[in-house]
Computed example of a mutant assay.
Amino acid sequence: MFVKNGTAELKHVLTSPPDYLKKADPINEISKKYQFEPLNQAKLANEYQALIAAYKKADIQVEQLLPQPVMTNSVFARDFGACVKEGYILGRFKEPLRFAERAAYEAKMKALGIPKIIEVKTGYFEGGDFAFLDEKTIAIGLLQRTDQVGFAEVKAGLSKYGYQVYPVPADPRYLHLDMCFNLITDHLAVAYPQGLPTSFLTLLKKLKIEIIPVPEAAIFKHGCNLESLGKNRVISLKQNQAVNQALIEHGVEVIELDITETLKAGGGPHCMTFPLNRS
């Protein structure tokens, strides 16, 4: 078994250092704001190492994909696909800037011995749009980078294994589902509810998932881009003070990281992490 859901104990992750992330390419609403200023390489490296250190402190095994010069955005390891109990889904990038990552991550997963059970070949699908709601229920965002064709390919592949897969359309400005919704524990999520469809909110209620609400502005400051470690623990950003306090009040241990430079390229801790094992 590889990844049984989104909130079980995280034991093994795949990441990639930001070695060639020199500037914020204008491929999302956040990065557009910073496209004309170079990114601070030392800060990027330190922020990545802080994430790795947090994982190691939590006894989580860390794998690294060493990037190539053409893989400027590979630090956002989440996006190449998704992992379930049976193996992994190889997605398909929409932005040409990220095309080179696909083969590199596919080769890495083969080297790690994790079987590819689905490959998106026609549509688009990125891992930032993939969210477990429970062990057999999965939500897939339809925002900027995943389309209906890609969704249908993933849903058809997963249905063979008994998963129920639901589409979650939302404003393309939010980029990925993990920017406006993230499950933290089995029955607790952080989200911007006004930006999510009524059908999805109804499903969350049916599954007894409580929402800690954030304002729309928080999406663009990575207020929802958190990484659950399981056992009521989560990695969050130091700047997410209101969200972090609400999580603490719900009995969650919050591990705060002072990440600011990486965010300028459009991704946070959740984007930087591809789970390989949750059990």
Rank of each mutant, 00 (worst) to 15 (best):
K205E: 13
A246T: 00
G251Y: 02
P215W: 02
N240I: 06
F36R: 15
T202I: 09
N46V: 06
I211F: 01
R233V: 05
K108M: 08
A53K: 11
M71Q: 07
F99G: 12
F200D: 14
P193Y: 12
I138F: 00
I52L: 10
F2V: 06
K231A: 12
R233L: 01
P17N: 08
L196Q: 04
L188H: 00
K57R: 10
G266L: 06
R145E: 04
P167M: 09
I211A: 10
H270T: 14
G123Y: 08
L196T: 00
K205Y: 09
T137K: 00
L207R: 12
E253M: 12
P167H: 05
L257I: 03
H270I: 13
Y20Q: 01
A170I: 04
K94C: 07
P193S: 02
Y88K: 13
H12G: 14
V70S: 13
E119I: 11
P69M: 10
V243D: 01
K57G: 02
E63C: 01
V243A: 04
L14Y: 05
N28M: 12
G230N: 10
D258L: 10
N225D: 08
Y88T: 05
L21G: 08
K205C: 07
P197G: 03
E106M: 08
A139E: 02
T146Q: 13
F132H: 09
K121W: 14
I30R: 15
R145A: 04
E216S: 05
Q241C: 14
E227Q: 15
K155I: 08
D171L: 11
G223H: 11
A104M: 12
T202R: 15
E101R: 08
S279N: 12
A8P: 05
G267Y: 01
S74M: 03
A217T: 15
R102G: 05
E249F: 06
F220R: 07
Q35A: 06
A217I: 13
P96F: 10
C224G: 05
T72E: 10
